[in-house]
Design a protein around this nucleic acid. Structure first.
Length: 577
RNA sequence: CGGGGCGUAGCGCAGCUGGUAGCGCGCAGCGUUCGGGACGCUGAGGUCGGAGGUUCAAAUCCUCUCGCCCCGACCA
């Protein structure tokens, strides 16, 4: 490609709306252009890089036994009503009405369509397992697109759906996909961490996310450096050490005692007033969920994890209750108590059992109880883990210290189970002639987000540093002093030779100063730069420099293309997983 | 949806105590330069996000509206 003909140009300054590094770099390089919030065009360079990613993913999916197909973006809304996920997707589902007043949805994902297909085409266990995938545009009306390509409304995604006869089959497919994902990230030069993830209100037992640790990530990962335990904070478990034991205080339940605690509303105030650590208190938090008021109780030093709470309650909507809702429930904010409460659903974190003689509200302004003990003094509807893990907490596996980091989610795999296949009648006859629902799995990767994640963690102050397999071009051919009669013909000849050798080369044939060309080469992040100039011509050579390295090397002009080819191949081999 | 910020040339910005728009980069032409974003001269390019209002006069003041960004909520 001749640079002078390339559509799109580099910007010296990043557009003001770009905050994250990947967003700035992708805009500055002219790889993408914004059309609206969360809607982008891919320009030639960006599209080339995206297609490289796409092909790597396709290759790994095929190797893992996947079969590629193409599914509709326009889907009858009935399909979504059938699975019930029109409700769970809610407003994120783009819908429209056609001229015949039929309601349609723009596919945010394709489990429904695929399950419906499989229902029609698969009848026997002999036909299982089936792994179907597509790489195509999906649409979600995100509440808040952000970070350039990190969270968008229109995005290209690879989704593979696995269909197995039983849980064991699913486990095998799941395993295969996890391995395929690891291969993909390795080939993309992306250090991705596999972490335990929340599977949401729908979906089965297991779910994992692949995370790239970087500050601009939207997610938070909790991990243990000792044993390798890692989980999304939404899911992360930790050991609730029995901090409630205060030296010199009795562990045995003492009689419940009401005390005056004027002006002590927050946990800090109460703990200070009574003279106990926060872990010796119980905290009440009120939520409103699917039209129901919920009273959550947790040890004073811990915080509620709303994802865990939502899962425990099996609800879709969850928000903090308003003050008037709290009052209407007959509770006194700041002094609320599970003791003697009636007509309200109470859910407790299991930390209420890790300690004794807690200080808790008396549900009376200005009063708290001392020595509250579960279950002696209060009962709950549900007791489970609803606490959020924090750095410094103890690892649930080895007891080591947990750390936390921001991360970009670059892949998500789910064991879906039979939820969707049952809705679509996707069943098969087993070897005993018995009809059983097909067991599904779902495995997604967002391509644009991968592109952004790579730029996010592979750059320097000059620009992007594309890993060779992703780079839009492998070689940036940069002749200087093109107006000098000795340079141009040689440059043209080299360009032809490189192309003939099958090398993807961007030929900077512009009449620009060396600084401009070098800076553009660095900004674009093309892995190998070849410089031809009157200077190198004197020694009948070309200067070759890797984007990742400081020092160039000289290659003789003679037989240049095969030498370049060999350099690239060596690099590719070294980068192999 | 709550909180905050911003909309002036392709990009970055100034102008905002009202008087009809300017700078840098980029772009076009000519000339000089040529190994890390060169220089000179000439030039093109703007519904000042949109609508309404106040005024003799609005980029500037008022009202409404649209869009974009950030934080949070949300997000299989």
């Amino acid at each position: 490609m001749r640079y002078s003909k390339l559509f799109g140009k580099t910007l010296r300054q990043a557009p003001a709306e770009a905050e994250s590094i990947s967003h700035q770099l992708l805009l500055r390089t002219g790889m993408i252009a914004q059309e609206a919030a969360g809607i982008y065009s891919y320009l030639p360079l960006g599209w080339r890089a995206l297609r490289k990613i796409e092909n790597i993913i396709r290759d790994e999916m095929d190797k893992a036994g996947g079969q590629e197909l193409m599914l509709p973006v326009l889907q009858p809304l009935e399909l979504w009503q059938q699975s019930g996920r029109d409700v769970s997707f809610g407003k994120s589902l783009f819908t429209l009405t056609d001229r015949k007043e039929h309601k349609l949805a723009l596919g945010p994902t394709h489990e429904e369509v695929t399950a419906d297909l499989v229902h029609r085409y698969v009848q026997s266990y002999r036909e299982l397992p089936v792994l179907l995938y597509q790489i195509q545009t999906k649409l979600r009306d995100e509440p808040r697109p952000r970070g350039g390509l990190l969270r968008v409304r229109e995005f290209i995604m690879k989704d593979l759906y696995s269909f197995d006869a039983d849980e064991a089959g699913l486990a095998e497919s799941y395993q295969k996909m996890c391995q395929a994902y690891k291969n993909i990230y390795a080939r993309l030069g992306l250090p991705a961490l596999m972490v335990e993830a929340d599977s949401g209100a729908i979906g089965g037992k297991d779910s994992h996310e692949f995370m790239v640790i970087t500050e601009t990530g939207e997610d938070e990962v909790i991990y243990c450096t000792d044993c390798g335990y890692a989980a999304n904070i939404e899911k992360a478990k930790f050991v609730k050490t029995d901090k409630a034991t205060v030296p010199g205080k009795a562990r045995n339940p003492l009689p419940l005692e009401e005390i005056a605690t004027p002006e002590s509303k927050t946990i800090e105030e109460v703990a200070k007033f009574v003279g106990v650590p926060a872990s010796q208190t119980l905290k009440a938090v009120f939520y409103f969920t699917d039209g129901e008021f919920v009273f959550a109780i947790i040890r004073g030093d811990l915080e509620v994890n709303e994802t865990k709470l939502r899962n425990a309650l099996k609800c879709s909507e969850l928000r903090l209750a308003t003050e008037s809702e709290v009052n209407a429930a007959g509770l006194v904010a700041g002094f609320a108590s599970p003791i003697g409460i009636k007509g309200v659903k109470v859910i407790a974190d299991d930390s209420v059992t890790s300690g004794s003689n807690f200080v808790v509200g008396a549900n009376k302004p200005g009063y708290h109880f001392m020595n509250a003990n579960y279950p002696r003094d209060f009962q709950v509807d549900l007791i489970t883990d609803i606490a959020i893990a924090r750095p410094g907490d103890s690892c649930p596996i080895c007891g080591g210290k947990l750390s936390s980091a921001r991360a970009i989610e670059v892949g998500h795999v789910f064991k879906l189970g039979t939820f969707i296949s049952e809705k679509f009648g996707a069943s098969f006859l087993d070897s005993d002639g018995k009809s059983r629902p097909i067991v599904m799995g779902s495995y997604g990767i967002g391509l644009g987000r991968l592109l952004a994640a790579i730029a996010e963690q592979s750059h320097d102050d000059k620009g992007i540093i594309w890993p060779l397999p992703v780079a839009p071009y492998q070689v940036y051919f940069c002749p200087l002093s093109l107006d000098k009669p000795e340079v141009l013909p040689t440059a043209e000849k080299i360009y032809q030779e490189l192309q003939k050798e099958g090398i993807e080369v961007l030929f900077d044939d512009r009449d620009e100063s060396p600084g401009v060309k070098f800076n553009d080469a660095d900004l674009l992040g093309i892995p190998l730069r070849l410089t031809l100039s009157p200077r190198t011509l004197q020694s009948q050579s070309v200067e070759a420099k890797w984007r990742t390295e400081k020092k160039p090397q000289l290659l003789p002009l003679e037989n240049l293309a095969p030498q370049v080819k060999r350099l690239l191949e060596e690099k590719a081999v070294r980068a192999q997983p």
